[in-house]
Amino acid sequence: MRVLKATALLALAASVLGFPQGADPANFPTASAVSAPIGESAQFVSSNPTGLSQSVAAEISSLYPPQERSIAYSPCVELPQGSGDTPKPDTPAVFQSYSVFAQVARSAPIPPGYRQTFGNLQASCNAQGYLGYASMRSYNPTMCAAFCNKTLGCQSFNIYYERDPTLNPGPGCLNPASTTFIKCVLWAGQVNAANAVNTGQWRANFQVVIAGSNGYWTGK
Rank of each mutant, 00 (worst) to 15 (best):
A72I: 09
R163G: 02
A177D: 13
C76P: 14
C144Q: 07
S97N: 15
C76T: 10
N195K: 03
Q122Y: 15
L17K: 13
S156C: 03
I38M: 07
G170T: 04
L10H: 15
M143K: 10
F101T: 07
T199H: 14
Q201E: 10
L121C: 09
Y98C: 03
N192C: 10
L131Q: 15
I110E: 11
V185G: 04
M1A: 01
V34G: 04
R163V: 02
S83L: 08
A93P: 02
A33Q: 11
A42G: 06
S138I: 01
Y133G: 05
M136Y: 05
W187M: 02
C173P: 05
I71D: 08
Y98E: 05
I182T: 01
G132V: 04
N48E: 10
T179D: 09
I159L: 13
A211S: 15
L4E: 08
G82I: 03
S55N: 14
A57M: 12
D164E: 14
G119V: 09
G129M: 06
A8S: 14
D24H: 11
I71S: 04
F118L: 10
R106I: 02
G200R: 09
Y98K: 03
F95S: 04
N214T: 07
A11M: 12
W217S: 10
P80I: 00
F147R: 08
K150E: 10
I182Q: 06
S99Y: 13
S156F: 06
S83I: 01
L167K: 15
A14W: 06
L174H: 06
S107H: 13
A105M: 09
S156T: 11
A194W: 08
Q103S: 14
G172K: 06
I71A: 14
V77M: 12
Y114T: 09
R106C: 04
E68H: 03
P80W: 02
Y130K: 11
V3Q: 10
A102G: 12
P75L: 03
A193W: 12
W217G: 06
N27P: 00
N120M: 09
E59T: 06
E40D: 05
P29H: 07
Y133E: 00
F101E: 05
N158F: 06
V185C: 05
W217L: 01
A102P: 14
K220G: 09
T180G: 02
P29T: 02
I182Y: 11
Q116N: 08
K183D: 05
V45G: 03
S97F: 12
Q122C: 05
W202K: 09
A42Y: 03
G113K: 12
V209I: 03
E68G: 04
F19L: 07
V185H: 11
V185P: 07
L52Q: 14
T7V: 02
Q81M: 07
Y216W: 10
A102K: 15
P176Y: 07
N192Q: 12
A211P: 05
P109T: 06
C154T: 03
G18R: 08
G113W: 11
F19K: 01
G113Y: 13
A105V: 01
G129E: 11
Q54D: 14
